[in-house]
Computed example of a mutant assay.
Amino acid sequence: MYVYGQNYRVPSTLMRGGTSKGLILRTVDLPKDPALRDQVILRIFGSPGNNQIDGVGGGTPLTSKLALVGPATQADAHINYTFGQVSLEKKVIDYKVTCGNMATAVGLYAAEEGYVELQEPITPVRIYNTNINKIIEVEIPVLDGQIQYEGDFSIAGVSGTASRIMVNFLDSGGTFTGNILPTGNPVDTVKLDDGREFAVTIIDAANILVFVKAEDVGATGTELSSSVNGNKALLDTLEKIRVKAGVLIGIITDESQVTPTTHALPKIAMIAPPQEYENENGIKVEKADTDMICRYISMGTLHRALAVSGAIALGAASNIDGTLPNQVVAMKKSQLRIGHPSGTLYVEVQVDKKESEWKANRAAIGRTARRLMEGYTLVPTSVLS
């Protein structure tokens, strides 16, 4: 950080990765003390309160994302990446989760900033993700010695086309709990305090996801943000299921302290069989174009698309015998087309069973990314006084 009048100047890069937008900050430019560092970051984003109007945060979970980057601490990596979900309502940054969309941006950033030597036609960027202690490999297209930005690849939820960036979570199973099936069961039952019971599948692959059938919570699976985010009863039921599942696997210990904006894990998603529906832009998604429908909840609201880590977890679950996604898709598919509120998403997953444990050997997805702005964000010096 550099002093500029009564402000600190923090070198900052705003990037879009997939269907998320976030700020990339270098650890060397921030205070070493984690508490002071987070004070600076919260001030940069304008959190908490008032839709982050006094900061660079966009006022939504998808635009309040942070990537802390620095030199690699692992011999087989090019760059370190720590993801943070910056709360909109509290002075909290959740580092107990990861984001594959922002990993796409970090891969492009690393190639642009010279963390890796460019090679044609693909430059693999190996990212050490400190949140999950695993390597994510991001494949950056290169042509004539330059990063190839233009292309004909598109993703639902983002306008236009660009070159395709493949994001591969290597050995993504058991990221947080050590087991791709944290309970050892393909299906568990959670009981809410009001006596209602729900069948769930809990999967730990890239992130921890709780899957519930849409019909079991009174939904169809084709709902859009306008109908889900205004349905307090549905969101309340999903949140209670999410919390109980978190308690079941031991990552939530005190239910009274949990809110959607303070405890990002586990995530929860509704799943349903293929159906015809209109997406958020009023474009018809054909039943034949999907293998499964998914509605992913992020920080208490419906994700307008589908998180990369959510797609990876869903792809892995669909290939494990007996899980709810496996039941919905009706057969194992290494290539899965997932219908979400903005369209469809394609994921490649390879899951194998070795003795009694399942292993996710490959989990890759095509994304696009773009640098949007670079320069300095300003933080009042009084923040650190």
Rank of each mutant, 00 (worst) to 15 (best):
I155V: 11
S225H: 01
D254V: 02
Q275K: 14
E139P: 08
G157Q: 10
E120N: 09
Y2Q: 11
D76S: 14
S226R: 08
L248F: 09
S309M: 01
R367D: 02
R16L: 14
G157Y: 10
D254N: 08
R242A: 04
T377Q: 03
G375S: 06
R337L: 15
A369Q: 03
N101D: 03
A214Y: 12
L68I: 10
V258H: 09
E239V: 14
L14F: 13
I208Y: 06
F45Y: 04
V40Q: 05
R295A: 02
Y4D: 11
R367E: 04
A67Q: 07
I203Q: 13
T60M: 12
V379N: 09
V349K: 02
Y277T: 09
K213F: 01
Y8P: 00
V142K: 04
A205Q: 06
N51F: 15
G250K: 03
T381N: 01
Y95P: 14
Q85C: 07
A305D: 06
S20L: 13
I140D: 06
L66M: 05
A111H: 12
A103N: 13
K191H: 08
L36W: 05
I202Q: 02
Q257T: 14
P31Y: 13
V187L: 15
W358V: 13
H78P: 03
N133M: 03
A199D: 11
Q39G: 01
P71A: 08
C99K: 10
V308L: 13
L42S: 11
A305T: 11
G246K: 00
